[in-house]
Amino acid sequence: MKEQPARSAPLLFTLLAVPPLAWLLLLFAAPLAVIWGYSFGENRTLIDIAITGSWANYARALKPLYLAILLKSLLFAGITTAICFIVGLPVALSIAFAGPRARLALLVAIMLPFWTNLLIRTYALMAILRTEGQINSLAGALWGTVAVPLGAGPFEPLPLINNNFAVLVGLVYVHLPFMVLPLYAALDRLDRSLIEASLDLGAGHLATLWRVVVPLALPGIVSGIIITFIPALGAYLAPDLLGGTNSQMIANIIERQFRSANDWPFGAALSFLLMYLTFIALAVQALAQRRSAAREAQG
């Protein structure tokens, strides 16, 4: 039924499809192809790159120095995803089970950060976390009124910024909506009578969550995890602005190749290494989805 308009007016359909296709080819596929080509090239002069078909850039990217950063990025993205899931599931549950008006307000609250520039939000986090920031001054004031009279020493500002902790705070803050929204969508689709049936049959709320809600929301959970993990893996601003000297993630290394190091071929190889990982993650999801779809279609 959906193909009907395309079939009845093929010319119009083609005409409508051309501009976006051209856009994608010109501004997405072509630059990507160029960068992919660079990843097999080497610098000749300062601005001239020869595509030699060598794997040298990939070999260099897999050296322990860079591999360690890649693994660390994977670890950070993994921790971020895990925290987002643990925090996001109750949030998504409470939105899905809120009344219609409260639900709208909560959804807007979740999406509100998207309407503010990421750079500005990250700077705001810097302001909050820095040594003289809001958290430290509040903690200092509390320390001064409670601990000092009890004989404690002067307040030592908490090390909240320029370290891995700050990077994780930033990553979780930025990526939480990416987890909450697909989880909410999955939970919203869930047939409420299944939850009631579980309660009716004697299961408590936790057992119902574990045995009924989570298994049935699994496709949403998987997309939430992937949609959070992929951008977190390539995060640039949080480690750059909030991290210390050893909180660099792979995106910061890539950026350095393209700018200060002016080594585009190596930067391209690092970028595509990240892309391959992303593709693998997506392939795993597609496979899982096809398997669950096949199971559903058995009837």
Partner: peptide, 17 residues
């Protein structure tokens, strides 16, 4: 509901899929 000595057959049956 989980501590009541009653059980329900739901209108749409609510069989766990």
């Amino acid at each position: 509901p989980n501590r009541r000595p009653v059980n329900m057959v739901f209108q749409n049956y609510a069989v766990f899929p």
